[in-house]
């Protein structure tokens, strides 16, 4: 099946979540399956569907430095998304395009990320449930939901990371933010900048090739209907306290 590709763009956290949902709705009505690449602007924290925002996020600090906070409609953990620190993708298509097993569908889509990293000369491995590792360290986290016959998987590829900033925004008790803990994150997480001087654009091109190799696709953009619906969803759900504080 032919894919619509929406090239790398930047969007705020609430609109980003709303676009994924608006596109899912339009695909349920027959639009092309869609792959989009995007960056979080401003930088943001996202939490998993089942997490408690107050348990996970230092809301005061986020407000102070202008970092948005949003609940995703996918499960998984809290993530700090730095505008200069990562590229995010969303894969959205009818469920029947993907393996029935959730594990196998993670493996398939994460395989596209792995192919993309290979284009940069980086050997990565899928690490179930939902991670991608390089040299045993995490470089990508991914999360999936299936609703109304549509599969959405979004995930991030870590380009750079300021561990100290991340810890100031996520709720880790202050005593844990010791050099030892920062060292332990550095032992578990890796970034593209550790492997070469790739620009964000190089990374995007490599990922795009990894996701689309052997598939039929066309570059496109969101329809006006999708844009309108995304604005509506952003305002009625993703910006709302009822949603973000629901658990």
């Amino acid at each position: 099946m032919k894919w619509r590709i929406i090239p790398l763009h930047a969007t705020d956290a609430f609109t980003a979540m709303a676009i994924d949902e608006a596109v899912s709705e339009s695909i349920a009505r027959g639009s092309l399956p869609t792959l989009r690449f995007w960056r979080w602007q401003p930088s943001a924290v996202s939490i998993g569907y089942f997490q408690s925002i107050e348990d996970e996020v230092n809301l005061e600090k986020c407000k102070e430095i202008g970092v948005d906070v949003v609940r995703r409609r996918t499960g998984g953990g809290a993530v700090y998304h730095d505008y200069d620190g990562e590229i995010t993708y969303s894969v959205i298509g009818p469920q029947e395009m993907f393996p029935h097993s959730i594990h196998d569908s993670y493996k398939l889509i994460c395989g596209w990320v792995i192919n993309g990293l290979k284009n940069l000369g980086i050997e990565a491995q899928f690490a179930p449930i939902n991670d991608i590792l390089v040299g045993g360290k995490k470089i990508s986290g991914n999360a999936q939901t299936r609703r109304n016959g549509i599969l959405l998987q979004h995930g991030t590829i870590l380009y750079n990371l300021d561990v100290r900033k991340m810890f100031s925004l996520l709720k880790v008790s202050q005593e844990k933010i010791s050099d030892k803990m920062i060292k332990s994150v550095e032992d578990r997480v890796t970034r593209l900048v550790d492997f070469g001087s790739f620009s964000m654009q190089d990374t995007y091109q490599a990922l795009l090739k990894g996701f689309t190799e052997g598939t039929e696709f066309e570059f496109g953009k969101l329809t006006q209907e999708e844009i309108n619906r995304a604005h509506e969803l952003a305002n009625e759900r993703y910006r709302k306290q009822e949603w973000n504080f629901m658990r």
Binding site: F50, I129, R146
Partner: peptide, 15 residues
């Protein structure tokens, strides 16, 4: 009871 965490559960609302 409130069940929170970084797990996955499909469909999500069934929590």
């Amino acid at each position: 009871v409130k069940i929170t965490g970084d797990f996955f559960l499909h469909p999500e609302e069934a929590i």
